[in-house]
């Protein structure tokens, strides 16, 4: 079985091709990443970039895998959650491919895909999942065939906080340099914590918008930028760790897995290692290359879904910008 997957939810247009054999299941993994010159991702600009890049990415992926498109079993595509204009490019390419090749089309939830590729690569079976990226901050676990949300952000996401803060104090773009976020780097020289910044954990949920506002204000009032970075980092990461520990204790699961773009942070990894030691659970961290958005995770999830017969008619394969992870029936597990 060979599946081609298309990812285009935010800044990356990616095509991955996977097979269901155990060794070397990734046949192709091609990506084009939109890097804004200034500011954040502009959905229109990103989607234009995708339109220009898509044919090349597709061509390269097919060449790399050395398969005839006729041999594909199905085409999978991420239909949400994400930015509308970006999602539409991937959906259009997928509908065209599926109709032209007369192959089934599999609708994949981007968040579920992050989790599924994480399970595949870390070999974990039933972990508590910490999902951290630019658009998501949630602690989820599989209960009754759904990835249920135990705690999440009440407002902005962790990646959103770090990126917006970095942009507003003039540290970014670029946001990530050599695999380290600029806020992490700036925090290295921080000496003291600004204890007046708010740490907000409500039940199982976190909230970052107050921290963001307070951090910007502290900086404008003359606080040392390195100290502000350090405080933002510590408060943000530790509140997530607290929620993750709560979910571990609540569900009594013995594994902890981290997925999503922010999972690549070495600082966070170090903290998570200490946390899992304390609670006696094993820790799985998705390799950075597959923690960020990519086509392979869409293809792999599409493969799992296709095996249990989940497909969609191309005419009905509409995007959904707000498709929550807990709305998907995980019938393959």
């Amino acid at each position: 079985m060979i599946i081609l997957g298309i990812e285009s939810t935010a800044h990356t247009f990616g095509i991955g091709i996977v097979s269901d054999r155990d060794e070397g299941f990734i046949l192709a993994d091609e990506r084009a990443k939109y890097e804004p010159k200034e500011g954040g991702i502009h959905p229109r600009e990103a989607s234009r970039f995708f339109v220009e890049q898509a044919p090349q990415v597709l061509k390269k992926a097919l060449e790399k895998s050395a398969i005839n498109p006729r041999d594909l079993s199905a085409v999978a595509v991420a239909l949400g959650p994400g930015m509308g204009p970006c999602l539409r490019v991937g959906a259009t390419v997928a509908r065209v491919l599926a109709s032209y090749l007369r192959k089934p089309l599999v609708p994949v939830n981007h968040a579920v895909a992050h989790i599924e590729i994480g399970l595949k690569l870390t070999g974990m079976v039933d972990p508590v999942i910490v999902y951290l990226s630019g658009g998501n901050t949630a602690v989820v676990a599989l209960v009754n065939k759904r990835y249920r949300i135990f705690g999440e952000t009440l407002d902005i996401a962790l990646g959103n906080l770090l990126d917006s803060f970095a942009r507003d104090v003039g540290l970014a773009p670029p946001y990530v340099v050599n695999g380290v976020h600029v806020v992490d780097r700036c925090a290295e020289k921080g000496r003291k914590l600004l204890l007046e910044l708010p740490y907000v954990v409500r039940g199982q949920d976190v909230s970052f918008s107050g921290l963001y506002t307070a951090a910007i204000k502290a900086y404008r009032q003359g606080a040392n930028l390195h100290d502000v970075c350090l405080t933002v980092r510590e408060i943000a990461y530790n509140s997530i760790l607290e929620v993750a520990a709560r979910a571990l204790m609540h569900t009594k699961k013995k594994e902890l897995m981290v997925v999503g773009g922010v999972a690549a942070s070495p600082i966070l990894r170090d903290k998570l290692e200490k946390l899992s030691q304390r609670y006696g659970v094993s820790l799985g961290i998705v390799p950075p290359r597959y923690a960020v958005d990519n086509g392979v995770m869409i293809a792999w999830t599409g493969l799992l879904m296709f095996k249990v017969g989940i497909t969609v008619e191309p005419r009905n394969a509409l995007i959904n910008q707000r498709w929550r992870v807990d709305e998907v029936d995980i019938s393959w597990r």
């Binding site: 914590l193 204890l195 530790n238 760790l241 903290k271 304390r278």
Partner: peptide
């Protein structure tokens, strides 16, 4: 004490 927290922040909490 939380081993993953900076000691002063941990203490304050």
């Amino acid at each position: 004490p939380k081993p993953y927290m900076p000691p002063d922040l941990d203490k304050q909490f």
